[in-house]
Write a protein that binds this DNA or RNA. Structure first.
Lengths: 338, 338
DNA sequence: ATGAAAGCGCTAACAC
DNA sequence: GTGTTAGCGCTTTCAT
């Protein structure tokens, strides 16, 4: 395993009998070069397999061709699919992805932002459930273009890509209502803060009230996003003998937990109780019955965020700071027509 | 959003009234510096928030503190959990992760290796289902330390982290046998090549034969790794009325597909048929009954790979090129005692 | 113990 | 159109 010294611009220049600036002009197409000379340089480059050292280049241009991506959990399906979009689009623009994981911990977020800054990333995409004020301020201070992919932007004046949670929940609630359901339980995902949960709750309530029905607080539950959270919440709820003909969980995993709780207590889905989820992750097609859920354009959210970042890097004006992407309802097999 | 020019070593030197070499010595602790001077420099650094520019540093030291990670699919659970281990450990050693996705396509793999090389990564972790000879040669040629996390190394002389597939399959087959099962169907995951499938098949056959039972080729099936693959394969198999009292799928998703096929055809799990999987991804706890499966140390595989890379970068000898990590059987609820 | 100076590989004035 | 030169921010001899 011999490590050979890579060819540099000097080597190419010497071999082609030109100056290094000419070589630079050829590789960057930055200034006109006589065709004959250009060809000679190109030949040498091909022959030697020369690749410009991006470190040296970045040092002088101040451009690293690197974009930092901060995710709460690589293993989280939501993040992974968004990351997928980010990765693919950034490659199209010759950017590379510097990845950092935070476990949703503010300290780690801040630490990672510092690392990414030091590595000279040109922009940062921040995926997180909630957004901390300190983090926003810090990113703002750094002057690095930043786009958030967060479920709630709170009231910060930041660039953000998401879907409209309130109206998504409202639409799904209406969907259930239109299918004849009257007692729709809401398993509202909570994170550290209630801002997002509030938005969703509002959507839910609006739909119910507009239908002329009453809000039943006994079937509105705060509940974590995991399978177990959904399972336990529904188990408790059903055992307390409330009237429920549909369950809307604001996470697919919780919805599947809910389905399993129903099964275990002898309820049939969707005959006895309908269950719907949120996100349309791959889980939703793996359970039986297949889960009806709000489909969010995760890949596109990543793609859009990257395109925004690149615009910002280029100094192109962006009309809207907060982008809301369209969602749809994936109607599968877990909702009855009553 | 004012972009302020970052503090450089020069600024610090001037402010502290010393030369830039002294500052360099202080930040790298590379040569003795008088305590008093050191303190002065440290104060200025703190005051200005100076962070050394890693690009400039890398340019002279030839060390980028970057490790390239190539994955077949960010959204794949296996890759994501391995990536998790890689990310966490590399941060511990002050390395950052440059991420590239390949969709298991050789051309993209090669393209990405080139990009990573150009970005001066010090090492590459390559996660892939199968390993292409061209890729191996290319990586070898580049002289960049590389560790593979692949399910099969074929016969290449490469650094690889995995589990022993043959013995894992054999152990699980024995587990089923010991529980009294006699007709164990094998859903053997196939990728482009059969090398890995062969290893697994051998493990399966050895267990059966050593128990003095006969191999029944009618219940040995090649089958993709997805939910649908498992579902269809098992549906076909059960409809053809073969004798089966257990199904061993070499992927969790296929196993869950298998479970669903059983349900749909009226078989109870585990009473009528036991089902087991492979990997222990999060799916295995989300289905009912919970899936008994071979648990692989995915996080650790990433961690071990990174540690190997770092050793290689430091020029430390590595005793074994191929590391096999221990696996266990996660015994949950999908296997009967007969 | 400290400073001066060279140079990592490249781009971008500036000359000609 | 092409070459010369000055840096980018840093580490590392080499003097002192």
């Amino acid at each position: 395993m011999v490590v050979k010294r890579p060819t540099t611009i000097k080597d190419v220049a010497k071999k082609a009998g030109v100056s290094i600036s000419t070589v630079s002009r050829v590789i960057n197409d930055s200034k006109p070069v006589t065709n004959e000379v250009k060809q000679r340089v190109l030949d040498v480059i091909k022959e030697t397999g020369y690749v410009p050292n991006p470190l040296a280049r970045s040092l002088v241009t101040k451009r690293s061709q690197l974009i930092g991506v901060i995710v709460p959990e690589v293993t989280d399906t939501f993040s992974a699919e968004v990351l997928n979009g980010i990765e693919e689009i950034s490659k199209m623009y010759d950017y590379d992805i510097l990845l950092a994981n935070t476990y949703s911990e503010k300290d780690i977020e801040i630490k990672n932002i510092n690392i990414l800054r030091a590595k000279q990333v040109e922009g940062i995409v921040m995926i997180s459930w909630d957004i901390d004020k300190d983090v926003v301020d810090m990113l703002e201070d750094s002057g690095i273009p930043a786009v958030y992919i967060s479920k709630t932007t709170r009231d910060y004046d930041i660039y953000n890509v998401s879907i409209n949670n309130k109206s998504a929940v409202k639409d799904m609630t209406n969907f259930l209502l239109d299918r004849g359901h009257k007692n729709i339980a809401l398993l509202n995902t909570t994170y550290q803060i209630s801002n997002l949960a509030d938005e969703r709750l509002t959507g839910y309530k609006e739909a119910i009230v507009e239908k002329g029905l009453e809000i039943n607080v006994d079937i509105i539950k705060s509940c974590g996003p995991s399978f177990d959270d959904g399972y336990m919440t529904v188990k408790d709820m059903l055992e307390s003998k409330v009237d429920v003909d549909a369950i809307f969980a604001t996470s697919d995993e919780a919805a599947i937990g809910a389905m399993n709780a129903c099964f275990d207590l002898g309820y049939k889905i969707p005959e006895d109780i309908s269950v719907v989820g949120f996100y349309d992750t791959k889980f939703s097609k793996m359970c039986r019955p297949k889960l009806t859920t709000v489909k969010q354009p995760l890949y596109d959210m990543g793609a859009v965020a990257i395109r925004m970042i690149i615009k910002m890097i280029k100094g192109i004006e962006i009309d809207e700071k907060k982008v809301e992407l369209p969602y749809t309802i994936s109607d599968r097999d877990s909702v009855a027509r009553m």
